[in-house]
Design a protein around this nucleic acid. Structure first.
Lengths: 204, 204
DNA sequence: TTGCCTTTGTGTCGAATTGCACAAAATATT
DNA sequence: AATATTTTGTGCAATTCGACACAAAGGCAA
């Protein structure tokens, strides 16, 4: 039985994984909590404690064998598989996301995309034909897609969210600049560049 | 003298501001910590305590007068002005950012954009002509730009970052999927959709 | 005015998170 | 084989953070 792991620890794991995959790409096979910590800007003790929530992945005196640790983290984060993702809203941001090449080796692939604009529906973006958002519920449910990226204007975000939740989506990456209301069983992560920038200017 | 305010509180302020601006746009002039908390998914007590770090902005029995609180938050976050922002890397993401219309009423405007690809340099994106990244240091320094959005591939991110820091940039919103190393005086915020998605799939 | 209702700002406390330090384990060296 | 070196995993202490509760203040109704 898994002890419930604090959110804040879970939120750091993808950062570790990203750094490890980068090291692996550079041909490095072993690292220490010290070295990894310097790369990601987190203390070595913190990293060791975070990882120890899930098992003993390192070896005293040697550190961590990177391919092994990557496998473990991918399993923990459930990205030891490829998740289909649906993208809603084919503005500039939706386009950029659908065409982005960086998802596949991190556990995700775009499976379909939607818009409500009749001029856009039917058009091609990358390998995909933009579908009518009226078919969103049906298509998402039938395909069993569990993860969505929401790129619609703020005023439509909540209504699309409700449809997604209804259709069985369990997680939403929200690019719309608005907070979403969802059941507890659904996880939301927010991406809002203006909020990121405002968190910066406070310190300048 | 301002007591040092915890990062975690600062990071919530832009979320409050966004919700308040939305309420204001909808013609609402007054709210309570209770109501605001429901909108952003944070407890009322938390909101009151966060705001009390900076002053007494509410009135017992009535709550908060939204235009006043917006002004206060904008001043605290230093977005009671418009910050020039430089965008580096004119791929799909850079394009989407430069063309995004949502920054101006939240304190930011794109001032210039750069790429290293000779085919892209000189081309028009929105109202801007793509400049040669070789001129980055000079142009940024001369214009006194303090904030950057980094949209280059991961392998170039650190070297561009170093140039930006050297040129006087104090904050970077990093879209590249890699951790950056910067002096303490420079603030970085990360936007990586794959990390957002991995934080979601853990819970599914 | 008086009494009732609402809502803030904050003191207190418990919980969550982080930092520190070290025994134990593994490797490297002599 | 014995010693030195490295680095993990973790117990404990310190700090940070969030929930709760309530006095005080303002508004409203009669």
């Amino acid at each position: 039985m898994t002890e419930s792991v604090p959110d804040i620890i879970v939120s750091r794991l993808p950062v570790y994984l990203r750094a490890l995959q980068r090291m692996s790409d550079n041909g490095i096979t072993t690292t220490s909590s010290q070295e990894l910590g310097e790369k990601v800007g987190i203390s070595a003790a913190q990293i060791r404690k975070d990882l120890s929530q899930f098992g003993e992945f390192g070896k005293q005196g040697t550190g961590y064998y990177i391919p092994f640790l990557i496998d473990k983290l991918r399993a923990i984060l459930k990205v030891d598989r490829i998740w289909d993702v649906v993208v809603i809203g084919m503005g500039d941001m939706g386009h950029a996301i659908v065409r982005y090449q960086g998802f596949s080796n991190r556990g995700f692939q775009v499976a379909m995309c939607f818009d409500s604009d009749p001029d856009k529906i039917g058009q091609q973006v990358g390998n995909f034909t933009i579908r009518d958002v009226k078919d969103l519920a049906k298509d998402v449910r039938e395909a069993g897609v569990k993860v969505a990226m929401l790129c619609v204007p703020a005023r439509f975000a909540q209504e699309v969210t409700d449809k997604l939740v209804e259709s069985g989506v369990r997680g939403i990456l929200n690019y719309a600049p608005v907070s979403l209301s969802v059941p507890e069983s659904v996880k939301v992560q927010h991406i809002d560049p203006a909020i990121g920038l405002q968190r910066i200017t406070y310190y300048i």
